[in-house]
Simulated assay, not measured.
Amino acid sequence: MSTPVQAPAGQQPAESAGRRAIWLSIAALAMTFMLPAAGLVMALFAIVAGIRAVPLLKAAGKPTGVTAGGIAVAAVALALSVATTGMQLYLMNENSAYQECMKSAGTVSSQGECFVQFKEAAQKKLPPDVLELIGATRP
Rank of each mutant, 00 (worst) to 15 (best):
L126E: 08
Q6K: 14
L126S: 11
L131R: 07
L91I: 08
V130L: 07
A30D: 11
T84V: 10
A38Y: 02
A43F: 00
M31E: 06
V48G: 06
I51A: 07
G69Q: 07
E132S: 13
N95L: 14
P13D: 09
A53N: 01
I134R: 09
C101E: 07
A121N: 06
L44V: 15
L44F: 11
R20P: 00
S16N: 14
L131E: 00
T137R: 14
G39M: 04
E120N: 09
T84E: 13
A60R: 02
K58Y: 06
L89Q: 13
L44T: 12
E94M: 10
L24W: 00
G18R: 03
P127L: 10
E120M: 13
A28N: 00
A14I: 01
W23H: 15
P55A: 03
Q6S: 09
A30K: 02
P128A: 10
T84L: 12
L29E: 01
P127Y: 01
A97G: 07
A122N: 12
F45T: 15
K125M: 08
V5I: 15
Q123W: 04
Y90W: 15
P13L: 02
P139K: 14
F115R: 08
V54P: 06
R20E: 05
C101M: 03
S2Q: 08
A7C: 13
E15D: 14
G10Y: 01
S104H: 08
P36L: 03
L89I: 04
M1S: 10
T67R: 04
A136P: 02
R19F: 04
L126T: 05
P63V: 02
L57H: 00
V41M: 04
Y98G: 03
I22P: 00
G70Y: 00
V108K: 11
A9W: 13
E100H: 09
Q111I: 14
A72K: 07
Q99L: 12
T64Q: 08
V116G: 15
R138P: 01
G39K: 03
P127G: 03
M102S: 12
L56N: 05
P55C: 00
A60K: 05
G10T: 05
S96R: 14
Q111C: 14
T67S: 01
G70Q: 03
V41G: 04
A14C: 09
F45P: 06
K58M: 10
A9S: 14
S81F: 04
L89E: 12
M31R: 12
G69S: 02
R20M: 04
T64V: 01
T85I: 08
A75Y: 08
A136V: 02
A121P: 05
T3S: 13
T107C: 09
L78P: 00
T85E: 05
S96M: 15
M1G: 12
A43G: 00
Y90Q: 14
A122I: 01
V41C: 04
V48T: 11
V54Y: 07
T32S: 07
V76Q: 06
S109G: 09
K103P: 01
A77L: 04
V108E: 15
G106T: 11
N95Y: 07
L40I: 10
G106R: 15
I71G: 00
V73I: 12
A9Q: 02
I134Y: 10
P13W: 03
G50C: 09
G18N: 00
A136E: 02
P139W: 06
A83W: 05
E120H: 09
A105S: 04
Y98S: 12
